[in-house]
Every structure is written in C-alpha cells, then in structure tokens.
C-alpha cells in the first residue's frame, strides 16, 4: 500500500514543485493522497474537498490554460487513488490490489496523455463543433450509465 502511495505521490509532487515553488499547491496535493489510511467516507470527503480547491485554482488561473497540465495530472492521480480506496474489498490481497492499482493508473495515464495532446494542439474550434463535441460527451455519459445499469 505504501509502495502504491509513493508511486502516485512522486510524479505529482514533482509537477507541484515545478509549477508552485511557494508550496501552497503541494499542500493541497499532499492532502489528496493520504486517504489510503482512512475510512472510505473520509477519503471521499478529502477527495471532494481537494477537488474544490483544484476547481478554484482552475477558474482563477488566466483563461483556464495556465495550470492545465498540473491540475489535470493531480486530478487524474487523485481520482485513481480514491477509486482504489473505494473499490477495496475485504477479500483483497496485496496482489489483487496491485492489479487494480495498475489498471486504474493505466486508464488515468492514457486519458491524461490524450487530454494533454488535445490541449497542446490548441484546437481552435468554432461554436458548431464545440456544441457537437459537448453533446457527444453527454451522450457517451448517458450510454455508459445505461450499460452499467443493465448489467
């Protein structure tokens, strides 16, 4: 568990230190991660509170672009850690937890790369494409919920 915790913490701390030498953000990220040790509800609360902090930073930063990589990375890692804690069952062995952790991190990393790629391309979308993209995302969301419910 400590191994997983450190693995998650290191890259994010690195980015945090790179972007925010003042240390205020590092504090937020450190708050994000120790929830392995806590009860599920407490870890969820910490996660939600940290998200509020990230949201505030994202809104306050210039045009929402300045801290893009940092915030999204922190969020991805936080989400993976939180989900791992949420999905931990009593029967889980260290090996099965490691497997879950790998799967979650793989998914997060792939998504992070895709998002970063899209952002670095700086696609100048017109209004029509933007509306189309948003509605597509929303449809995907509804579809996913439907699939999960049906089974």
């Amino acid at each position: 568990m400590i191994y997983a915790f450190l693995l998650q913490l290191l890259p994010v701390l690195g980015i945090g230190v790179m972007y925010y030498p003042t240390g205020t953000m590092v504090l937020v990220i450190v708050c994000l991660f120790p929830f392995y040790r806590f009860h599920k509800n407490i870890s969820a609360t910490i996660f939600y509170l940290s998200n509020v902090a990230l949201c505030l930073i994202a809104i306050n930063s210039a045009g929402g672009q300045g801290d893009f990589y940092f915030i999204v990375t922190a969020f991805a890692a936080g989400l993976a850690g939180w989900q791992l804690r949420q999905q931990q069952l009593e029967q889980d062995t260290p090996a099965s937890l490691k497997q879950k952790f790998k799967q979650l991190m793989l998914l997060s990393t792939v998504l992070l790369l895709v998002t970063s790629l899209l952002n670095s391309l700086q696609l100048g979308l017109n209004m029509v494409w933007a509306v189309l993209l948003v509605s597509m995302v929303f449809c995907l969301f509804i579809f996913a919920i439907q699939c999960v419910r049906d089974k």
Partner: peptide, 12 residues
C-alpha cells in the same frame, strides 16, 4: 474553462 471540461472526462 477548458481545464474543468478536461477534468470531467476522467470520471466519464
């Protein structure tokens, strides 16, 4: 805000 929309993609 682009960052927030990008963040919403993760739970999706």
């Amino acid at each position: 805000n682009v960052t927030l929309v990008a963040m919403s993609l993760f739970p999706l």
